[in-house]
């Protein structure tokens, strides 16, 4: 490789010399290079030293224009990651609701709200049946899903059922259980 490269460089220099002088015909290539003034390669792309601070800001700006990756839409919709995302989403919905109610109950005497269980039950009872069903389903769905999927996660944490096949199958079971149990809870007590 090195010898090839060297020959190539020599040939290039000879070719460059040939156009300006006719002396090339008298010498072989190595002799010609020795005889003539050495022609060094020039690089017209100017370089400049950049202070460290400036280099840092250039690098930061360069990194900011990199493509954002990964994007969710590049993945095929599959049970493992979809259910994992839903586990967090339902958890945040449930905990968020819990936190909102707890904080609202604490400040309700100051603001004159009635959040006692009897007042809430009385106002909930007055709602139309369809709205009641929807509200109850809206609470029961994240609750049952997070409960069943949480148990699935605990089974994995104990080191069981963690093959690809079983993860998909248990996911299907969780979806089935969620639909049935949340439907039953929504209908219960109507």
């Amino acid at each position: 490789m090195i010898s090839q490269r060297f020959t190539q460089i020599s040939a290039r220099r000879v070719f460059a010399q040939r156009s300006i002088s006719l002396t090339s015909t008298r010498f072989s290539a190595p002799a010609l290079i020795t005889a003539c003034k050495p022609l060094t390669q020039s690089r017209p792309a100017a370089t400049q030293t950049v202070p460290e601070d400036e280099a840092y800001s250039i690098l930061k700006a360069q990194r900011a224009v990199r493509p954002v990756s990964p994007h969710l839409t590049i993945y095929q919709t599959q049970i493992p990651w979809t259910l994992s995302a839903l586990n967090r989403i339902t958890g945040i919905i449930l905990s968020g609701g819990f936190y909102v109610f707890g904080a609202a109950y604490l400040v309700s005497p100051l603001l004159g709200w009635h959040l006692e269980s009897s007042a809430l039950a009385a106002s909930f009872a007055e709602l139309p049946t369809a709205v009641k069903l929807l509200l109850k389903f809206g609470v029961a769905l994240p609750f049952t899903y997070h409960s069943w999927n949480g148990m699935r996660h605990l089974v994995w944490d104990s080191g069981r059922q963690f093959s690809n096949k079983m993860v998909v199958r248990s996911g299907q079971v969780v979806i089935g259980l969620t639909v049935v149990s949340s439907g039953a809870l929504a209908v219960y007590g109507l």
């Binding site: 840092y56 224009v65 990756s69």
Partner: peptide
């Protein structure tokens, strides 16, 4: 001012946060 090296598509769901190296 900085030019992107990358030729893959840029999809802006969220702008990249401030970069710290």
């Amino acid at each position: 001012v900085a030019a992107p090296f990358h030729t893959s598509a840029r999809r802006q769901i969220l702008p990249p946060g401030p970069q710290v190296i």
